[in-house]
Design a protein around this nucleic acid. Structure first.
Lengths: 337, 337
DNA sequence: CCAAAAACTGAAAACGTTTTCAGTTCCTCT
DNA sequence: AGAGGAACTGAAAACGTTTTCAGTTTTTGG
C-alpha cells in the first residue's frame, strides 16, 4: 500500500497525492477531496522512512535524559512527550548514565536517526562550543541552571530555573523561621554546577543572615537515589545531631531524609524542619507532607518543546528562566528552643 | 557523508561498504579493515531512513503506555528502555489516554513509523482477534493480567502477573493477621479486567475465610492518581469507619489512602492496616513504610523486551507469568483487641 | 475573443541504503 | 597445468517518498 496505489485508485498522479499529503496549495479542492477519500478507503499510511530519506530529516525529536532515578525528571518527561505528540512529532528516548556521554550520545543519535531536534533533560549544562557543535540540529537544555559561561547565546536554547536563587530562597525561608543550624544534602558530586550553585545559594543565604556556613553540616549523597539520600542523612547524623533544619536539593532526597531522621528518633518538624526543591506529586501525601519549592514541571516540558519546534522552524534560540513556587507542607516549623 | 563517500575514500564499491556494515561474511579481512578505518576517519554514520526504507522496517520498538500517572509503570518503562537500548534497538514512546485507543494507536504507529515491534504497557489485555490483527508486527503485552479468553496463544506474547491470585494473596495476609472487616480501593472503572480480577481475588479470599464480602467496603477511585485515591478514601470513610484493614490495588493509592486515614485521625497501622500491590521505591520511605507485594519491575521490562526481540527474530510467541514478592513494611498489624 | 497570467498537474530525478545477480579472482585438487 | 569451485566484488535495481521543471488547462483583463 503505497502512494502509487492511491494514485491509481483515485486516477491522479503520484505527485498530486504527495501534494495533498503535504497540504500544498496547488491542488483543486475537488481533486483534494477525491484523494482524501481514496486515502481513507485504502487505509493508506505514508511511509515515514521514505519521507525522511528525501527530506534528509525525520520528524523525531530525541530526548536524552540523565538521572531518571529522580521522579521529578520522569514527570517532566511526561509533559515533554505530550507536547511532542501534540506538535505532531515523534519522541525517541534515550537514558544515559554519566554526564560526559551526554552530548556525545546525543550527537550520535542525531546523526544516525536523523533527528530534527534534541532535548537534553536533567544534566548540568556548561558544554564547550566544540561539544555543542557536534549536535547538528537545534537543541534545548531543560531543567537546572544554565551556565551562560562559554557559549554564545544563539548557539542553543534552554529552559531552566536559577539554582542559586532557588536554593537561597529555600534556605532563607528556614532562616526566617528562626533556624540557625541548617544542614544541607547535596546531590551527586558529578553534577558540578547544580550542587555548586545550590550550595552557593545555601552559603550566601546563611552569610546574609550573619551565620557562618559550617562544612560539617554539608553532606553529599553521591547520587539522586533515595537510598543514597537515606545513607547520607545517617552519615550526617553520625557527625552532628544539633541542626534544627535540613535543606535537600530534591523532594526524593527530602522524603528519604525524613525517614532517616524518623528512624533516629528525630521527629519532623518538631525536632528538625525539612525543605526541598521539586514538588513531585507524592510529597503532598507523605506524613508529614513535604514543604518544597515546586518546579513548574508541565510548563518546563511544554516550553522546552515549544521553543525547540520554533527553532526547528527557523526562529531564534532562546533562554527561558522559570520560577519555583512554594508549597507549604508540614515539615517546616520554628526551631525548639 | 554517505556510503558512497566511504566507498570512494577506501577504493572499494558501495556494496562492499554495505556488506561490512551488515557483517556479511563475504568480505576479505583485509578489505574489511580498510573499510572500517575509512568509516572511522570520515566519521561516517549510516542513514537509518535509507536503511529502513529498503528493509521496509526500522529498528524502532514502540512502547504504548497507558496510565503513566502510576509511578510503577514509569519504572517498568525505564527498564524497558534499558533493555531496548541494550539490544540495539531504538525506543519510540507513546502515551495514551483511554484504553479503547490503545490498539488502534499502536497499530497506526506501527504502520507509519515502520516499527519492528510493539510493547503495550499498562492496560488490560483482552483484545479481539480482529483488533490484534491490525498490529502487523510482533507485540508484547506487559503488566497486568492476561485474559487468555478470545485470543489464540500464538498471536501475541505477554508478561504479566496473575491479578486474581495476587489480590487473593494480599487480602489473605490481612485475614491471617485477624482482620475481618477489610475494605478495598479499586482502580478506574474502565480497566475492567484488572479491577474485576483483583476484586474477585478479594472476594474469594474473604469467602474462603468464611467472611461475606460487603459492597459498602468497596470503593472505586475512578483513576490511578493519588488525588483520586485520597478522595475515594474519604468517600469510603464517610460511609463506613469500622473497617480495620484496607487493600489498595497500587502503592500510590495506598500512600494516598494512608494520608486520608491519617487526616481523619485514623492511625496506620494502629487503627487500620494497609496493604498494596506494586512495590515502588518511595513506599519504602514513607512513614510508616508501606507493606506491599512487589511486582518484579526490572524483570518485567527486561523479559518483555527479550521476548519481543526473540519473536522479531522468528521465535514463537510466549506468555510469561511473574510472581510478586511480599515486602513487609510497617502498615500491617493485627486489629485492635 | 485573444493574450497573458494563474492555477493546476504529471514525469522524472533524487534521497542513501540493501540485495540480487553476474562476474572476476584466487585456491585446491587432479 | 587446467578445471572446478570457493571467495570475493561490483553494477544496478529497488524501496516510497518529495520536489523541480515543464507542460496543460483555466481564468482574467483588455
Amino acid at each position: 500500500m503505497t502512494i502509487k496505489d492511491v494514485a491509481e485508485y483515485s486516477g491522479v498522479s503520484i505527485s498530486t497525492i504527495s501534494r495533498v499529503l503535504n497540504n500544498h496549495p496547488d491542488v483543486r479542492e475537488e481533486v483534494r477531496a477525491k484523494v482524501l477519500k481514496a486515502i481513507q478507503e485504502l487505509h493508506y499510511v505514508p511511509n515515514s522512512s521514505a519521507r525522511d530519506l528525501v527530506k534528509t530529516q525525520s520528524d523525531a525529536i530525541g530526548v536524552v535524559v540523565r538521572g531518571v532515578e529522580n521522579p521529578f525528571l520522569t514527570s517532566v518527561m511526561r509533559s515533554i512527550e505530550e507536547a511532542i505528540r501534540g506538535a505532531g512529532y515523534t519522541m525517541v528516548i534515550h537514558q544515559i548514565g554519566t554526564e560526559e556521554d551526554e552530548v556525545a550520545e546525543g550527537a550520535g543519535l542525531v546523526r544516525s536517526k536523523r533527528l530534527c531536534g534534541l532535548i537534553l533533560l536533567g544534566g548540568r549544562f556548561d558544554y564547550t562550543p566544540e561539544q555543542t557543535a557536534t549536535i547538528e540540529v537545534p537543541f534545548v537544555c531543560c531543567t537546572y541552571t544554565n551556565s551562560f559561561g562559554s557559549l554564545d547565546k544563539n548557539a542553543y536554547s534552554s529552559v531552566f530555573i536559577d539554582d542559586y536563587a532557588e536554593a537561597y530562597k529555600a534556605v532563607n525561608l528556614l532562616i526566617e523561621k528562626g533556624h540557625k543550624k541548617i544542614a544541607v544534602l547535596l546531590g551527586a558530586t558529578d553534577d558540578r554546577s547544580i550542587s555548586e550553585l545550590r550550595y552557593k545559594g545555601y552559603c550566601d543565604a546563611l552569610r546574609d543572615a550573619g551565620i557562618q556556613p559550617d562544612q560539617s553540616l554539608v553532606e553529599q549523597t553521591g547520587g539522586y537515589s533515595m537510598k543514597n539520600a537515606y545513607n547520607a542523612t545517617e552519615r550526617l547524623l553520625a557527625r552532628r545531631n544539633d541542626f534544627t533544619a535540613l535543606f535537600t536539593v530534591s523532594d526524593s532526597m527530602g522524603i528519604a531524609a525524613i525517614k532517616a531522621l524518623h528512624n533516629s528518633g528525630i521527629s519532623v518538624p518538631r525536632d528538625c524542619s525539612v525543605i526541598a526543591i521539586d514538588g513531585i506529586e507524592v510529597s503532598k501525601y507523605t506524613i508529614p507532607a513535604l514543604t518544597t519549592l515546586i518546579q513548574p514541571r508541565k510548563p518546563m516540558g511544554y516550553e522546552a518543546v515549544r521553543i525547540l519546534v520554533d527553532v526547528i522552524k527557523g526562529k531564534k534560540n532562546c533562554q527561558l528562566r522559570l520560577e519555583t513556587e512554594l508549597r507549604e507542607g508540614e515539615t517546616v516549623a520554628p526551631p525548639k528552643k
